[in-house]
Computed example of a mutant assay.
Amino acid sequence: MNAPTKISLPTTGQLALAARLAEGATAPTGDITHVDAATYTDPARHAAEQAKIFTRVPLVIAPSALLPQNNMAVPHDGFGKPLLIARDKDGHAQVFLNVCQHRGTRLVEGSDPVCAARLVCPYHAWSYTLDGKLAGLPRPDAFPGLDKATLGLKKLPTRELGGLIWFAFDADADFTTAEALGADFAAFDMAGQYLFRRRTHAVAANWKLIMDAFLESYHVQRLHSATIGPFFKDGISVADRIGPHQRSAVGREAALAACAADDWPTLRSAITYTYQLFPGTVLIVSPDYMNLMVMMPQSEGRVLVEDFMLIPAAPGSEKALAHWEKSWNLLDGGVFAGEDFRAAALGQEGLASGAIEQVTLGTLETGIRHFHDAVEAML
């Protein structure tokens, strides 16, 4: 899973965004639009989003790098049901309900990876292989006629595409647009990355407020003025859509001329690509690492955000370790938690007060408009 980074070419879509950046900025066009404040604060709206979006469409649950070896499993509770992300002995990723089929006991506790050829229930020691099959049980004579083949773990639809693991609660979920994005992530060799750090943040905000922040560059020079803002040219950004998903690119101040290149080292020095994966995942591709953020709404005013930092290979020295730690602390602890998530929480407080009836979006915030239109279409 963590082989050296492969040499791959950018996709046609990635190059098209780069070419538009290389042509220079154009004045934003369009009209001012609005989003009702209740979209972020209404409990009934939250319930509808859970019922009609999060239980129906494919969701990103983790990067492939979370499970770098075969016979690994990670418990996951963020989406409201006990889940288990597993990689079986043949290397296939699976998502199961983390529930023993004997008496309904949670099979694996905690949230840390487990490495084992079998998962053993802590109650009666029924055991399962990592492909979900019931492998054995104590005193089988006490269960005459039991067909083990019918008592495997409950499997959910799962796809591993370009270094991301997607799943769905709905057996009929359509993974077509997720599959279309796989080539983009393969071009970054996401499947070959090393998971450096992961952390889950509890944010006192509606999940859409956090998605909003990653759908526009208007705030970068303002909110991030003391951190990453100086690296970017104000207003130099382009975007397109792949189904309900959005792909955007922001030009870096020091290297805009390099946007016309067609090789990754040059392009990544000039451009930060961001993918907003519907409904609630963000991938940010920085010059030498990536951050994947998975949003798991808990209520209309609270969301869990799991941040994964992916780097090309495991640190090979103390100097390399210090370099990646600095990047992790800057982004996860500073920019995301200290600025983006804080701004979302402040926004939630203001919207919940009833001070305004609608949020106003300008022409630099059209990505937010497209996102909310996609949410409305699902509802």
Results as ranks from 00 to 15, higher is better:
residue 263 D to N: 12
residue 345 A to H: 07
residue 52 K to N: 12
residue 125 A to Q: 14
residue 262 D to V: 00
residue 275 Y to C: 08
residue 311 I to E: 11
residue 357 E to M: 07
residue 223 L to W: 03
residue 228 I to W: 02
residue 343 A to C: 08
residue 89 K to I: 05
residue 205 A to T: 02
residue 371 F to C: 08
residue 226 A to C: 07
residue 325 E to T: 11
residue 283 L to I: 13
residue 271 I to H: 01
residue 114 V to H: 11
residue 188 F to S: 03
residue 72 M to A: 10
residue 330 L to W: 07
residue 338 G to W: 11
residue 269 S to K: 13
residue 233 K to G: 06
residue 208 K to S: 04
residue 169 F to Q: 01
residue 130 L to W: 02
residue 76 H to N: 11
residue 299 S to R: 00
residue 257 A to V: 07
residue 94 Q to W: 15
residue 242 I to L: 12
residue 25 A to V: 15
residue 318 E to A: 15
residue 9 L to K: 10
residue 268 R to P: 01
residue 85 I to K: 03
residue 26 T to A: 13
residue 307 D to L: 15
residue 323 H to I: 11
residue 290 M to E: 04
residue 304 L to Q: 03
residue 240 D to F: 12
residue 316 G to N: 04
residue 299 S to T: 05
residue 220 V to M: 13
residue 226 A to K: 14
residue 311 I to L: 11
residue 126 W to M: 08
residue 109 E to M: 12
residue 272 T to M: 10
residue 185 F to W: 14
residue 152 G to K: 11
residue 131 D to Q: 11
residue 15 L to Y: 00
residue 45 R to I: 00
residue 183 A to C: 07
residue 15 L to R: 01
residue 274 T to Q: 10
residue 135 A to D: 14
residue 26 T to S: 13
residue 362 G to Q: 10
residue 130 L to V: 08
residue 253 E to Q: 15
residue 235 G to N: 08
residue 136 G to Q: 06
residue 335 V to P: 01
residue 126 W to T: 05
residue 229 G to R: 07
residue 310 L to F: 08
residue 146 L to S: 12
residue 152 G to V: 13
residue 57 V to G: 08
residue 261 A to I: 00
residue 202 A to F: 12
residue 48 A to D: 01
residue 262 D to M: 00
residue 224 H to W: 12
residue 109 E to A: 15
residue 84 L to V: 10
residue 361 L to M: 14
residue 347 G to E: 11
residue 257 A to L: 09
residue 237 S to W: 14
residue 338 G to M: 08
residue 218 Y to T: 04
residue 82 P to C: 11
residue 254 A to K: 14
residue 63 P to H: 06
residue 25 A to Q: 15
residue 215 L to G: 08
residue 342 R to G: 03
residue 145 G to R: 06
residue 13 G to F: 00
residue 355 A to F: 08
residue 74 V to N: 05
residue 7 I to S: 15
residue 74 V to P: 04
residue 347 G to N: 12
residue 86 A to Q: 06
residue 98 N to A: 10
residue 172 D to N: 15
residue 177 T to V: 09
residue 14 Q to C: 02
residue 17 L to F: 04
residue 357 E to K: 13
